[in-house]
Every structure is written in C-alpha cells, then in structure tokens.
Amino acid sequence: MIRLVGILVGLGFTFVVLLTFLVGAYTAATEPAAETAEHAFHLTPKEDVHFSFEGPVGHWDIAQLQRGYKVYKEVCSACHSLKQVAFRNLADLGYSEAQVKAEAAAWRVPGIDPNTGEATTRPGLPTDAFPSPYPNSVAAAAANNNAIPPDLSLMTKARHEGSHYVYSLLTGYQEPSAELAERFPESLPGPGLHHNPYFANLNLAMAPPLTTEGQVTYDDGTVATVDQMSQDVAAFLTWTAEPKLVKRKQTGWPVLGFLLFATILAWFAKKSVWANAKRRED
C-alpha cells in the first residue's frame, strides 16, 4: 500500500517537474534569455596585488595600515563612516596611548552641551567610534544624490575577495568601452554615475575618490600614487573588517599542530587496541 501510494506520488512529482522542464526548455528555445550588461562586462577583482596579511602566515604591514588610515581620514571619511571601529583600536596600528588620544581628539563626535543639553559635537575620546559624517541616513541620501555611502567597517568582508575588490574598485574607473556603448546603451553611466567594471551593476554613484598622485601626503615618504593609496586603504579596511585576522592565523598553527600530534597518537592507540582483536583470532 505504502509502496503503491509512493510510486504514484513519485510519478506525480516527476510528471509535474518534467512538464515544467519542457515548458522551460520551449521558452528557452523560442525566446533565448537576453544577455545582460553585467554578465558581459562585470569583472572579478584583480589578483595582481599581494597583501602582507594574505596566506597562511600573513601578518599586518603596520606602515601600510597607517598610510591606509591616512587615506581613509583625508579622503573616504568625508562620506563614509566606520562605526564598528573605535579610536582606541588605533593602538593596533602601532600608535601610542598619547597618540591615540590626540588622534581621537582631532575628530568631532556627537555630544551634548553640558549646560543646555542641546545636541552639539565634542572632541573624540579613545572609547568613541569613528563618527558618521552625516547626522542620519536621510541627510546622507540628500547629500549624495540619493545614494547612501555605506559604512566601511566591514566592507572587505561583505564582498567576495574584499581586499582585492576595494583595490580594484578604486583603480577600476574607466570610460565605458565602445562595445558596451554599442550593445548596451542603457548601461552607460547616467547623470551622476560613473562606469566601473568591478562594481556589480557597472554604474557607481561614487565619483573616483583617488585621482591624483600625492593627493595624500604620506608621513613615511612612500610615493602616494593612486595605485599605492588604493592598496593602502584596502589593507586598512581589511584590518577594520577583521582586526583579529592575524591573531586568528597565529592561533591556528599551534592548534592544528597539537591536533595533528594528538591524532597521530590516536591512530597508534587505535592500532594497538585493535591488534588485540586480530591477535586473539590468529
């Protein structure tokens, strides 16, 4: 009985799904799905840069993180917040306690007037998070042609191959190709948009933020080419997204080493236990 019902139900589902398949196949044959501009022109992130934190024994390049921080501070922070990161975290980038305090105090964060209770701003404290440049999302949208600049704290984890993605996006602005213009004229950047093949839909509301060599003056004398600045800020944003990245890998090795040792022991112990069974049989 169960088997009979089972066979009927099975044939039922099979019939319906195959019917769906035939309908789909017919549609696909008669009206092939239109190619989309994203499909044809979107590029995956560039693989030609190597970051020090990559690989199984990756480590932070402190000088690079400091440079990247400067790029964020002088360029990106005009529009993007970093709300998961507190000034105190800058100690990870090699700044002393006094430097962190001074750095924090150079930023204005939201506060209240101690006498009147009115909203105002005050110098940051190490425990404050990086402030948003806009009081709220409506203000952010209004100032940016309705495109809200996202928080950057987790950007490199929120995209596939995030570090390379940020680097590629910043160095990827270009004129749309003639082929794109011909095949997908509707995918050309509209007013206020900028073509960038590394962006999911090819049209980005953010104008190229890093455009000229020397836009940021590096304290360590590194030449601030657009490529260099892009790499540095990508590295910095990798740190903001996962400050424990290097510690994680450093913890991983001893744990795996111990487990390997214990597993080998377990293997021999298992063999020795089972040898008893085999021996009794012989």
Binding site: F258, A262, L265, A266, F268, S272, V273, N276, R280, E281
Partner: peptide, 27 residues
C-alpha cells in the same frame, strides 16, 4: 574471547594508549 584485553600484567602498548588519552585531556 574476542577483544578481551589481556590481563597479563604490563602491556607493551600501554604507553601509546596512555599518551593518546593524556593528549585528549590536555586538549
């Protein structure tokens, strides 16, 4: 008597078994 551990005093393989159990304890 399949698998009944021999009771005849010191077993040569004891060491490895104790080591494995200790490693599990340490972990």
């Amino acid at each position: 008597e399949v698998g009944v551990a021999s009771e005849d005093g010191v077993r040569r393989r004891d060491f490895i078994e104790i080591a494995a159990v200790s490693a599990a304890g340490v972990g």
